[in-house]
């Protein structure tokens, strides 16, 4: 990788200040950023490590929500969310592999918004609030297409607040090489209705499948989505699956998520 300066602040305020430097970029778990830098696809001048910021670590329950610090690793979420939000714990425990889960963080994943990442589906399906150093952003406004979010230059995801659903499940169909989601569907059921978010499938990144939400809000049963069709247009087509195949997976996995959510 190309050379850079490295700073490891101990507070969000220091991190934000450090990110004011030209071509500065935050480094969270680094599980995506470092490989990109090794391939010279990314070459920040300054890396601001978020790993030393205590206030960005850990999970806490706040009423009906789970608040997770931006620098909390997938492994920690998989362990610590088990009681409060088992579907999220299961999702976290299925990201990458054990070593990746020990470094990768929820804030890093959301900020990166990889179209095949798992966390964006959970955030969108739960109507989560993305908390940054300067504001709070609703998930519906946060994800803005492939690798694109509402974050401004130098803005850090310090925490995520996820309303805990009554019932939820995440179904991930893996891409066999990268082990990312070829398609992943998060179904979350609340008193006010059902939300369904899909990752991996669309050329525009994570999205809500509103037809399924309507059908499931009406009747929360796996066969409620069997008759729905997902348009192949706009779905990703690559060597791992055609748009039509991905569209099929969206429907199948949604049904399975509903069945598993119980």
């Amino acid at each position: 990788m190309q050379s850079f300066d490295f700073v490891r602040p101990s507070s969000v305020a220091e991190a934000v200040a450090a990110l004011g430097a030209e071509d500065a970029q935050p480094l969270s778990g680094g599980q995506t950023l470092l490989p990109s830098m090794k391939q010279r696809l990314a070459a920040p001048a300054v890396l601001v490590s978020l790993s030393g910021i205590a206030e960005m670590q850990g999970l806490r329950r706040e009423g009906d929500s789970l608040v997770i610090g931006g620098a909390t690793t997938h492994a920690t979420v998989a362990r610590a969310a088990r009681t409060d939000f088992p579907a999220l714990a299961e999702l976290a425990g299925n990201i990458g592999d054990p070593a990746v889960r020990n470094r990768g963080t929820i804030g890093g994943s959301l900020a990166n918004n990889d179209p095949s990442a798992c966390y964006p589906a959970a955030a969108l399906a739960t109507g989560a609030t993305i908390v940054t150093d300067r504001r709070q952003i609703a998930a519906d406004d946060f994800f803005q297409g492939l690798f694109t979010t509402a974050l401004e230059e130098g803005e850090i995801v310090t925490a995520v607040r996820l309303p805990i659903p009554q019932r939820a499940n995440y179904q991930k169909f893996i891409q066999p090489a990268s082990r990312f989601a070829l398609v992943g569907v998060f179904v979350a059921s609340y008193a006010g209705g059902v939300r369904v978010a899909v990752t991996g499938a669309s050329g525009d990144g994570v999205f809500r499948w509103t037809e399924a939400e309507a059908a499931l809000s009406d009747r929360f049963a796996a066969d409620a989505v069997t008759g729905l069709t997902v348009e192949a247009e706009g779905m990703i087509g690559d060597l791992h699956g055609t748009p039509a195949y991905r569209a099929n997976l969206v429907r199948v996995l949604t049904g399975r998520a509903v069945a598993a959510a119980g």
Binding site: R8, L27, G30, L34, S51, N102, R103
Partner: peptide, 19 residues
Amino acid sequence: CTVHVDGMAVKSCTMLAVE
């Protein structure tokens, strides 16, 4: 490249030495 860092398995090719 897996090693243990503070007891946890980590891919040492995806972690900076300074970290």
